[in-house]
Write a protein that binds this DNA or RNA. Structure first.
Lengths: 222, 222
DNA sequence: GTCTATAGGCTGATAGAC
DNA sequence: GTCTATCAGCCTATAGAC
């Protein structure tokens, strides 16, 4: 009849947040549950109690990061045979770029927590054999890729599927780059965050892609 | 008078190779020197003897990977005021793409060792605060970036420096992408390696970039 | 150069009081 | 739900024989 018995001072959440920061800095094996618990002002036995194991805590960290920072909705991929397919594809491309830039927190002042989650995710994406990725991909990433591919197939018809993959790479690659190699970017910019202006980056990338596709926005209406 | 007293069965090198494979799989903290030594058919005390510490071995792994697999030479960045600057810039762009694709071992059958080194490097690049990157960047990466930026400044003059960075991202991003997220790529392709054909990828990316720049190779001579 | 043996410390997980 | 105390196992680094 009444609300769920919500725990008052949520140790569980404090553990997830502290773990996010520490896993990002030191990696899964680089930090112990004692240190995490201390940072969360909790007891190390709480890790086993709430998450079953250290690995369970790690899974919770990954899931929490996606659920907090990752947009789930995108315009559905346009139908190739629809009358206004080209216009929809252009809008879809633009939406994809902006959603990804937003998910990746490009050009915003990220919280330490967001930045830390990105670091963890990047480490995980770089693994050839991550046991966590397949599920997370299905739930949070695969749809976005398919939406992008569908748009690009319409905007530049006749490509092989390999070429569609290359083309997706020309859109996703630049967006991922700045999040992927923060250390190297910092070396290039003398330490200042990059990009500073997300809208400018999105606009540049959208324009760049349209030029390469040989499509002008004006064409697309007809 | 005679050759250096070269060790006969090089334990040092065996340790570096075994460590490359194991660090790639489990990360620096995820594997112990005992396990590394066992895989190298050596004694764990040899790590301290030859490299000073486990971290020293890790540094040796990074350095060995770069020195083995990473091209050091690129055509010098073209001078903007030279008479054939545009042609040189086009050649430089093409050379950059192919050198990077080669360094990244895209579309080749990589040895387990090369693939492992890539994994380690990717992990390291993703760190915000890697203590190893600045030196390696200076020695192996910064020059390539500057060469690319110089070419692009000539091919599309008048951009702000931020826009030059965006533009560099449209070239480097796609190339790095496939090495960065092997796990995700595998999920897209159903497990088969990607790209299968390096030359096709390079040609596509070069063509894509030229279209976006509004430059045709024929223009460049005059 | 290569080995064995070991010191000293940290790890994740858990049993059991409250 | 939260805590303390503790176990068994692992870690890196090193001392010292050969």
């Amino acid at each position: 009849m009444n609300a769920e018995p919500e725990p008052r001072s949520d140790v569980k959440q404090r553990l997830v947040e502290a773990a996010t920061l520490l896993f990002a800095q030191h990696g899964f094996d680089g930090v112990g549950i004692r240190e995490i618990a201390a940072a969360a002002d909790a007891n190390s036995a709480m890790v086993a109690y709430h998450f079953g194991s250290k690995e369970g805590l790690y899974r919770a960290v990954l899931r929490a990061g996606f659920e907090k920072g990752c947009a789930k909705d995108l315009p559905p991929p346009p139908q190739a045979d629809a009358p206004e397919a080209k216009m929809a594809a252009l809008a879809g491309l633009r939406a994809h770029i902006e959603t990804m830039a937003s998910d990746l927190k490009l050009g915003e002042h990220t919280s330490g927590l967001d930045e830390a989650f990105m670091g963890i995710l990047m480490r995980e994406l770089g693994r050839v054999d991550s046991p966590y990725l397949p599920e997370l991909d299905r739930e949070f990433m695969a749809g976005k890729f398919e939406q992008l591919a569908a748009c690009l197939r319409i905007l530049r018809p006749g490509l092989t599927e390999d070429q569609v993959m290359y083309l997706c790479g020309t859109v996703s690659g630049p967006l991922l780059l700045y999040r992927f190699i923060p250390g190297v970017i910092r070396l290039r910019t003398g330490g200042k965050p990059f990009p500073e202006d997300r809208e400018a980056l999105c606009a540049f990338l959208y324009d760049h892609t349209l030029r390469a596709l040989g499509v002008s926005p004006a064409d697309a209406g007809a």
